[in-house]
Write a protein that binds this DNA or RNA. Sequence first.
DNA 1: AATCCGGGGTT
DNA 2: AACCCAGGATT
Length: 358
Amino acid sequence: MPASWVSPAFFVSPSLPSAENLLRWYHVHRRILPWRAGPGSLPDPYHVWLSEIMLQQTVVATVIPYFHRFIERFPTISDLAVAADDEILGLWAGLGYYARARNLIRCARAVAEAGGFPVTLDGLRALPGIGPYTAAAIGAIAFDIPVVPVDGNVERVTARMFAIEEALPAAKDAIAVAAARLGAQAAAQSRPGDFAQALFDLGATVCTPRSPSCMVCPWRDGCAAHARGLSADLPRKAKRAARPVRRGTVFVMQDRSGMIGLRRRPPRGLLGGMLEVPGTDWEATAPPPVPPCAAHWLDAGTIVHVFTHFELRLTVKVGRVAALPGGIVAAPPDTPLPTVMRKALEAGLAVLDERSPK
DNA sequence: AATCCGGGGTT
DNA sequence: AACCCAGGATT
């Protein structure tokens, strides 16, 4: 038989990975997560939405305690919609990507106003904080809209199944097309929510980034990367730039009643709208440290915190003050803070405690 | 298309 | 220490 009778695609994917096989695997191996409903039943859209926002670039284990605290405090989206911004931002403190929390508030109020979530992808996509991925995820999981949400897991699984060797992010379109092909199978179309979550779970527990467990994979037979011994090498990714270092100084102030001096950051940008320990700007070379008020400043060392695109080294000074200066808000030491500011505050308070323990 | 935007789990 | 995570908004 002439080789030309056989299309190259035949060698790339001998047989499409079976949606039915994956769903059968999912029935046995699915993760039990607080925002999930039982197999075959649709979960609460509010729970799905809240979990999806929290899960953006955040691992499941980190999200779970935050999710529980939110659901306990805000049992319905209406409870969330009428809450004060500060309380919501406080509950979000430490989770990161604070624009998510600001969009969460706007989205909750829009949904409460409308009387419920839109049930179309375009309607979901129009809400604050909901992009193409999250719209597809909520649509599939909460409303059984037949669509494949393409997150990092699905990108990885799909790139391997079809042995897509082009590097990300250039390969995004090709991967999305291939993922849609997986979802076009009848079994996936009939259970879009389970199919999406099955892909997530396969990527999270079997088709993992570093050393995938191909021996127990329900899709091994249909996996072109496995056939070529490429599984652990895909998807390829473009190299990232090195992370620069920025430096600054913060001043931890404690008054006689034990209150700490904090400052509200501008509403947008890095740590937008969150509280911070007052200090200098953050530059490549440390700006001159100008204390916010006169005090006997003690050295509390340096804390290091890694952000997505730079590393921050903060020199921490600490002092007791008779009265907090103007423009500074007095807050108790356990006030919810972004992690970098929590680190700085703890470093300062540790030095005070060691000098004059209570 | 690039860049900005946290924090931490995993290896 | 590097990589990556149920990405979105902005420029």
